[in-house]
């Protein structure tokens, strides 16, 4: 055997090194975990049937139709997620569980695909979509600093929505406004020649309900 430890077989292990027995009086799952500390909004429960609480009954029907359409086809996950996002506007985690169980795919793979592609979102879109440009010109002029500051102050990662539902944070590669670099867009409005502070000032006025004039 080529591994460095060369301890040989499992039987050769020191008994003191064994795992402690699990206490059967303590159920293994689910344990209380503060949901907001985690990336996933709903706490997973061990249940036989997957309950989809998100959305309306009509959306639920459409979801079932999408899954039926792709059942048994090879590599259906991306298409299914695409269509399902069309139904809900985002990918709620109970819907992801439903998709995983119906298509017989591991949960981690579904989550992996849903987070790999920029297109998929895991939160409903916020009231305003903030899109920070990381195209070449904006990047050189400090676009990444602006993004970092916004991430820190809003407390959200790229692609996610603030808990109050006000802002969804996105990035983009060039709006064709390089002359104004660094640039961000809030909904349809372009703001240029930004600094991190200026960007935050703009977002704060959106929060107060006023829309600052574009650059």
């Amino acid at each position: 055997m080529r591994n460095r430890l060369g301890l040989g077989t499992i039987a050769a292990r020191d008994p003191a090194d064994r795992e402690p027995p699990t206490d059967p009086s303590r159920p293994r799952s689910p344990r209380p975990v503060k949901a907001q500390e985690w990336e996933c909004e709903t706490e997973d429960k061990v249940t036989g049937l997957i309950d989809v609480a998100s959305g309306s009954a009509a959306q639920r029907k459409q979801l079932e139709r999408v899954v039926e359409e792709y059942r048994g086809l090879p590599g259906p996950l991306i298409q299914v997620l695409h269509k399902v996002q069309g139904v809900y506007g985002y990918l709620p985690s109970d819907v992801l569980r439903f998709v995983a169980s119906e298509l017989e795919l591991p949960l981690c793979d579904v989550r992996g695909v849903a987070t790999f592609y920029n297109f998929f979102r895991l939160d409903p879109a916020g009231k305003h979509t903030v899109s920070v440009c990381l195209g070449t010109a904006c990047y050189v002029k400090g676009g990444a600093e602006i993004l970092k500051r916004i991430q820190r102050e809003l407390g959200v990662e790229e692609g996610r929505t603030t808990p109050d539902g006000l802002f969804t944070l996105d990035t983009a590669r060039c709006f064709g406004a390089c002359g104004l670099a660094p640039v961000m867009m809030v909904d349809e409005e372009v703001y240029g020649r930004l600094s991190p502070t200026k960007a935050m000032r703009i977002l704060n006025s959106y929060r107060e309900g006023t829309k600052p004039s574009a650059a």
Binding site: R31, C40, D44, R111
Partner: peptide, 10 residues
Amino acid sequence: DLAVPWGTAE
């Protein structure tokens, strides 16, 4: 799983 806490990963 779905990026849930390991202890709750079914």
